[in-house]
Design a binder for these strands. Structure first.
Lengths: 353, 353
DNA sequence: CTGAAAGCGCTTACAG
DNA sequence: CTGAAAGCGCTTACAG
């Protein structure tokens, strides 16, 4: 039973023969302290292993901090990007007591100029920290340069641009993710029939995650089943009808034993399979969207690969808080666990609360 | 950007024309308030949607609470029970600032009397809350009766005894867990060869989880592959040498295509398979112990099923805190997600920090 | 039954 | 460069 009482700045002040105001000054590096007293105070802080009382600090502080976030706009009320946003919101709510406020911005994944406009709005707010999904590299780099000018710390989420001075990155290792999908689809298709990789997307140019997943997938088969027939196709999501027809045609031509959809759009493939009654296809995709769960339950989807997207958002905000407010060191690379969801364990992955 | 300032007891006191002391009295139901003023104050609290400032409360409060925990002693420095203990420790550390202290007790899984003795010690401390793994039902019920006498709230972890007035239960659904293992082992064994279920344990009497896993496993095969040969055996862990020989004999007799070990002791089966060079056996077991990870990496173990044991400990303490300190409602049943770990996603399941 | 005051550990002006 | 004082929102004796 820990009985050692907390060390207070008062204790430090007494030992150093100074006032608590002076201790506070060296604690926060805000100068106006002679080098000599600074050193003795620092020494005593070390000796006594002082740790500030976070609650007293928060209670007394009038400092208000503003965090801004810039994520893609969810494609629907249940789209993928609602999940990181939910995690962000949760942590922000918890941090309100610590004087953190939040401005949320989203941008269209099809319009780099929208990203630029929102970035501009964020800069005009002079935030104290930014969480950012740097979907468009070029535009992100310009934004980042401005943030660095203003000494605004920032955290990347979902995508990463290495060595840009980010406080941290939270996201997925899509390549390894693709390898896992390959392994699982291999288990599901003992007949060694042909496989399809499907990208349901508008344009692949900015879809680095999907490409990485595809590459990991191929790499696994190259290593483990080099003779296996694997083919990649892109299916546009502009015209849902056309996308059904397209998959139907691919089915007729290749009679695949298994299909890997590189994104949360796996429900589109599942719809086609269900509607046309395409038989004997094992199907793997991503993310716990409600419709994906439904197809998992009825058995059209076999596995969903997930990456705790809510947690990524929650942790990104938390990293900003720990780094900016508590000046704690923050780990730079933070890959989310790659989770395997199937009919048998689905019910235990609840909604994020 | 939320601009509405926080409502303080001072604001309530002003509107009710009373002092803040009186507001505090009704807030904490500690009587000495006339029914009339109580009602007006309550009304205003509702109207203004008052929420206490947790940090001011914690800072001002001199109340120290003691939580006690009673878990099985880990069988080794890396045994399963180190993990819930780690989660407990983490949350306790975070809560120290809120005046929570902690006394930790562990008991031998082979000695009910040890459990009884430790329970007695806990009672003599008059704790304000208890986290308890009720491994021995009879002895647990006696302990619980005493806790209820003293109005000490308690939370179950790992095992549950329904309807005992526990604040909450955190654990696993072992039956569903067994079904998942069955499904995965089925994918791994397309040859439809025979399967073994192995209980590595001292006595099965108290091993409810292992039995539940076995039952779920059988249920899955009954539904999906009723012709499949599945047999269960117990292997003693008292004599490791004898356990090797035993598995070797089972192998010779049944030539199983797959083995399901119902506990974290899967590394014992893996050792036998490795040392005797038993071929073509797919192997599934439980929990991310270091040795299990090693066998997963080298490919002797195919899947490990896990249940976030650290999180169970963390959440159990947190439930106690939310229920006891903040008087918040707590969800009673809390099943951990059943996680599937394999070579391809192992590296992203870090140590609990 | 009620109020006024001290204090929790810190931050923030302000005075010197 | 340094100290003393007020105050953050709450709890805890204590006085009446």
């Amino acid at each position: 039973m820990d009985q050692k009482r907390q060390i207070r700045i008062k204790d430090i002040a007494q030992r150093a023969n100074v006032s608590i105001g002076t201790v506070d000054r060296v604690l926060h590096n805000r100068g106006e302290v002679s080098e000599e007293t600074r050193e003795t105070v620092m020494r005593i802080i070390k000796e006594l292993d002082y740790h500030p009382n976070v609650m007293a600090r928060a209670l007394a502080s009038k400092k208000k901090l503003l965090f801004a976030t810039l994520l893609p706009t969810p494609l629907s009320r249940e789209g993928y990007w609602t999940k990181p946003a939910a995690g962000i919101k949760k942590r922000i709510t918890e941090l309100r007591q610590f004087g953190i406020s939040h401005e949320s911005f989203t941008y269209s994944q099809n319009h780099p100029l929208d990203f630029v406009a929102k970035a501009e709005q964020i800069l005009s707010l002079h935030p104290d920290g930014v969480v950012l999904a740097p979907f468009f590299s070029r535009e992100s780099l310009l934004f980042i340069a401005r943030l660095k000018e203003g000494n605004v710390p920032f955290v990347f989420i979902d995508s990463n641009i290495p060595d840009q001075g980010q406080l941290a990155y939270f996201g997925q290792n899509s390549y390894r993710c693709g390898m896992l999908s390959a392994r699982l689809l291999s288990l599901l298709t003992p007949g060694r029939g042909s496989l399809l990789i499907l990208h349901y997307a508008k344009e692949m140019e900015h879809q680095n995650h999907l490409v990485q997943r595809e590459m990991g997938f191929y790499e696994w088969y190259r290593k483990n089943q080099p003779d296996r027939q694997v083919r990649t196709f892109e299916i546009s999501i502009d015209d849902l009808n056309a996308s059904h027809v397209k998959l139907k045609e691919l089915y007729e031509e290749y009679r695949p034993e298994g299909i890997f959809v590189t994104s949360s759009k796996v429900y589109l493939a599942a719809r086609t399979i269900g509607e046309y009654g395409l038989h004997n296809i094992r199907l793997i995709g991503h993310d716990l969207l409600p419709e994906n769960k439904k197809f998992l339950t009825v058995g059209i989807v076999d596995f969903l690969i997930c990456q705790r997207p809510e947690e990524q958002g929650y942790d990104a905000v938390n990293a900003l808080f720990q780094g900016v407010v508590h000046k704690l060191p923050v780990r730079e690379y933070n890959y989310a666990p790659i989770e395997i969801i199937t009919r048998e364990n689905l019910e235990f992955y609840h909604e994020f609360k």
